[in-house]
Nucleic acid binder design. Structure first.
Lengths: 123, 123
DNA sequence: CCGACTGTCACGCAGCGTGAATGTAG
DNA sequence: TCTACATTCACGCTGCGTGACAGTCG
């Protein structure tokens, strides 16, 4: 199963909670490509790949596009030009914090509404 | 503008923060149809229509489908069979609370990640 | 009669779900 | 060899964005 500390897709799906389709899709759009393949063509993911998937998974509720997430994940991993990295991170961190705030507000509003629904249902 | 306490689409967009396209789309799929039209064809929304839009807007972060939201909104407004209403509401309220909880967790995870990003950016 | 607002198509796009038919690992 | 897991198409779906072009309101 663990050919040299590598994980195949099903294992990764279990670890991350992402679907096989989603993980494959992330390779299609070059967001999280597997570090290797078996001779027969099975995808092989390193622990670092899995970490990257977790980053993507955690950013998902903030509704960044997959393109944006690629940029962010790259910056976090120290890929690309050092200058660009800083600007990207700075920009996206601000944006991300804004989204967190708005999401918090939306969640609060949703919870209030659901409480109302509960009352209507229990009546 | 307010032909007898009715609002036209632009006003409704301002009130709710939804886009014109979104509001029109909600009519297309029969989620929030306007209560009337002007002679020339302009959509006219009552305050009750606006309230319904707000319900939909607040449920959005919970990622229900528009079909599900129609059912929920109908139940909240007391439309349809009384028996069905109760079962629908009960089912959906449970589901909604579950989604609120999961969203809270995801938000917490996102915030933690963003804090990490902030540290990486400020370094 | 002008400008701001609104109308209806209709195509485009993201992010996967969901088979179907086939091959690989062990 | 058997079977659990994996592969590649490729079409389908939701929820709008985004013009283009035309009509309405005051």
């Amino acid at each position: 199963m663990a050919t040299d500390g590598m994980h195949q897709i099903g294992e990764v799906a279990d670890l991350t909670g992402l679907s096989l389709r989603t993980i494959r899709h992330y390779e299609e759009v070059d967001l999280v490509p597997p570090s290797g393949r078996t001779a027969g063509g099975f995808r092989l993911y390193t622990d670092a790949d899995v970490d990257r998937l977790q980053v993507v998974k955690h950013l998902k509720p903030l509704r960044f596009t997959l393109d944006e997430m690629r940029t962010i994940a790259d910056a976090l991993e120290g890929r690309g030009d050092a200058e660009d990295r800083r600007t990207h991170l700075a920009t996206y961190v601000d944006e991300a914090e804004g989204r967190c705030g708005r999401l918090r507000e939306q969640l609060a509003a949703a919870e209030a509404l659901v409480a109302t629904m509960r009352r209507a249902a229990d009546r």
